[in-house]
Simulated assay, not measured.
Amino acid sequence: MENLQKQLIITGATGMVGEGVLHEAILSPYVNQILVINRKPCGVDHPKVTEYLLTDFLKPEEMREAIKGYDACLFCLGVSSVGMNAEEYKQKTYDLTLGFAHVLQEENPNMSFSYISGAGTDSTEQGRLAWARVKGKTENDLSKLGFGDYYSFRPAMIKPTPGLKNALPFYKYINWTFPILNALVPHMACTLKELGEAMLEVSIFGSAKKTIEGNDILALAKQMRMRL
C-alpha cells in the first residue's frame, strides 16, 4: 500500500463535484497528501489536506513552488455556459484550464491529469453547440500537453453525496429521477461518490481508456471498490 500512495492536487473543492471528489480522496487509503487549489477557502480541515489560494486562475504562474512533486491532478473546476457569452465561456473553460495545466505540466511532467468535461462534449470541435465545441477543444489540447497520463471524464447526471454542503440547489428537485435513470439508462447517471472513485482509480492505477464516458465511470468505480 505504501508504494501506491499518491500525492494529489484537486481544484474546484468549493463546488459540488470538487467537494465530492476531495471527500473520496480523503477517505482513500491510496492517497496520503492532497493539495487543494481554490480561489477561496473550502473549509476542509484534515491532516491530508493543504490548501493554496489562487485568487486568479488565469494567472497560475504564482503557484509553481507549491505544486512541485505531486503525482496527479483532479481538475474539477468548471462553469456552466448558461447566461454566459461565448467569449467569456471560452476564457473560463478553455483559457483558464489550459493555462493552469501548462504550468502543472512544466513542474510535474510525469503527473496524471484528469479533467471533468461532460456528456455530449464534441471532440470534432465542429458541432452545433458552442459549449460542446469549447469542451472538445479543451480536451483535445490538454491531451497534447505532454502529461505522463491524461483523462477526460464525461459524466451526465451526478447524484450528490449526502451530507456535503455544495450540492447545487436544483438537485433536490431531481434526485427522485436517479432510480428511474439507473433502471432505464444506467450509464446516464452516476453518484458523486462513483465519480470520485473512478477518478482515483485512473490516477492511482491508470486506464487504457482515456475518454471516460458514463458507463466507464461506473466500471472504474466498481474496480476501485474491489481494491479496498
Results as ranks from 00 to 15, higher is better:
57 F>R: 01
84 M>N: 03
61 E>C: 11
38 N>L: 10
148 G>Y: 05
159 K>D: 13
201 E>P: 03
134 V>L: 07
47 P>E: 14
151 Y>L: 10
4 L>S: 04
52 Y>E: 04
148 G>P: 07
88 E>V: 12
133 R>T: 07
39 R>P: 01
201 E>H: 02
184 L>E: 13
45 D>W: 05
73 C>D: 08
221 A>Q: 07
117 S>L: 01
62 E>F: 04
223 Q>L: 01
91 Q>Y: 08
167 A>K: 09
206 G>H: 09
19 E>K: 13
119 A>P: 04
15 G>L: 11
50 T>I: 05
69 G>K: 06
54 L>K: 03
206 G>F: 12
213 E>G: 02
152 S>W: 07
155 P>S: 10
123 S>T: 06
153 F>R: 12
20 G>V: 08
4 L>D: 01
185 V>H: 09
185 V>S: 13
58 L>F: 14
95 D>M: 12
133 R>V: 15
226 M>S: 15
29 P>G: 15
38 N>P: 08
17 V>W: 04
8 L>W: 00
16 M>Y: 08
30 Y>T: 03
184 L>P: 06
45 D>F: 04
95 D>Y: 09
56 D>F: 08
105 Q>I: 13
206 G>L: 10
127 G>H: 04
3 N>W: 02
13 A>F: 07
134 V>K: 02
11 T>A: 07
158 I>A: 03
64 R>K: 14
3 N>S: 09
63 M>K: 06
55 T>E: 15
105 Q>M: 15
178 F>I: 13
152 S>V: 13
20 G>P: 03
211 T>L: 13
149 D>G: 09
64 R>S: 12
143 S>V: 03
139 E>W: 03
39 R>G: 15
140 N>M: 09
114 S>D: 01
201 E>Q: 05
127 G>P: 00
89 Y>E: 03
215 N>L: 06
72 A>H: 01
160 P>V: 04
38 N>V: 14
186 P>K: 06
58 L>S: 15
79 V>Q: 11
228 L>V: 03
8 L>T: 02
3 N>K: 10
76 C>R: 03
69 G>I: 11
58 L>H: 14
50 T>Y: 05
186 P>S: 09
219 A>W: 03
